[in-house]
Computed example of a mutant assay.
Amino acid sequence: MAMKIAMVSPYDFAWPGGVNSHVVQLSAELRSRGHDIFVIAPHSPSKSPAVVDQHDRQFIPMGRSVPLSAGGSTARVTFDWWLYPKVRALMGREGFDIVHLHEPLAPLLPLMVLQHSRSVNVGTFHAYSDRRHLYRMCRRAVARWQKRLHGRIAVSPAARAFVSPHFPGYSYQVIPNGIDFERFASAEPLRDLKDGKINILFVGRKDERKGLRYLLQAFSTLRRTRDNTRLIIVGPGEPDRECATLLSVINAEYPDSVSVTGAVSDEDLPRYYASADVFCSPATGGESFGVVLVEAMAAGVPVVASDIDGYRDVVFHEGNGLLVGPRDPTAIVNAVARVLDNPDLSVRLTSAGRDAAARFRWEQVASRVEDYYQQCIEEAERSGAAR
């Protein structure tokens, strides 16, 4: 049955990020199945749209954003209270079958939508943090909006464990993030990067919690004995002061050994993975899932990652990747060296990684989301809780 679905993100769609990427890709897969999808999110007009065409009639911009720092990362959300009547009119006019809110308790847009929605409301909880004070501080304030959800999805066991203690009595369906498996599995390497050097790849924002400084420290050690090794850093943002200092020192001692590309296009990203000999994600915490790990495995790249919640739901140590202690450059050095020096290990991790990544195809993930929508609709109709 075709449904009219609103996808709501609290995060500015003019800025790249994991939640917005999830929304775009899930929306595309559901559209391919005949559903009518509308994306509702803040959008800063001063930025060129990073993930969606702002003139698409099925993208509904709602307010401008301001940066909000928390957990070693920066989110851009809207606090425009004047949106209240606009959201109320939209919810009254469109008659959505499903309103799917991503981070449904985040300020401010999802809360406005929940206030006025008369549809079946499904929330996806993406976040995870080692610091649980945020939900503790706002639990009473947002509890009434939590009650307006008819269904709750967590993208991983870690995300479920983060939210569920603060709102007991609710069940959460674990449905993971997805990837376009074939796009990564079939990618060709970039010609400029297949020049005989050994490529270590990092993909992600340069936020503190992504742990780039520890990879730079590890690479500095590796480079002393491996003069054909190159570090490739892909992702938006500028390095913090410590990372910038480390980069200056490395480039002075080993010129052209580190390539910092900034953000790359969706078309080029799989090719960077395909150009890598090992992928490293040294995040320090706050990761609910680890899409970059799945992308790397789909591309056939052995993975070295931090042994943290969220990542452990994707990578199994010595099975489809190697896990190392967070904030430990020496452990990164040893794990990367093991992969580079042991072809049999590299092949085994690559094969197991590809098999694991295949489970996260968007086709499979979207089917589970569709089934859950239908379950929520049927339960709401039986209880008379919607419409």
Results as ranks from 00 to 15, higher is better:
Phe279Pro: 10
Met112Pro: 00
Ala244Gln: 15
Glu287Asn: 05
Leu111Ser: 06
Ile5Phe: 06
Val314Gly: 02
Leu90His: 04
Gly286Gln: 05
Met91Ser: 10
Lys47His: 14
Tyr170Ser: 02
Ser351Thr: 14
Asp227Leu: 15
Arg152Ile: 07
Leu231Trp: 08
Leu201Thr: 02
Asp266Cys: 02
Ala106Tyr: 13
Phe181Thr: 14
Glu253Phe: 06
Tyr272Val: 01
Trp81Met: 09
Gly285Gln: 09
His133Pro: 00
Asn320Pro: 04
His22Gln: 03
Asn228Ser: 15
Ile5Trp: 00
Arg57Thr: 09
Ala298Gly: 00
Ile233Trp: 10
Val163Ala: 03
Lys47Val: 07
Ser73Tyr: 14
Ala305Trp: 05
Gln25Val: 00
Gly196Ser: 10
Ser48Met: 12
Arg312Lys: 12
Phe184Pro: 00
Arg191Met: 12
Ala299Met: 08
Asn199Lys: 15
Arg140Phe: 09
Arg140Trp: 11
Leu193Glu: 08
Ser117Tyr: 04
Glu94Tyr: 13
Phe279His: 12
Arg148Phe: 06
Ser9Gly: 00
Val234Ile: 13
Gly63Tyr: 07
Ser257Ala: 15
Arg64Leu: 09
Pro236Leu: 08
Val142Gly: 11
Arg209Trp: 02
Arg223Val: 08
Leu26Thr: 12
Tyr11Arg: 04
Ser73Glu: 09
Val365Ile: 15
Val122Leu: 06
Tyr128Trp: 15
Glu238Met: 12
Ala161Pro: 03
Ala161Glu: 14
Ala274Val: 06
Trp81Lys: 12
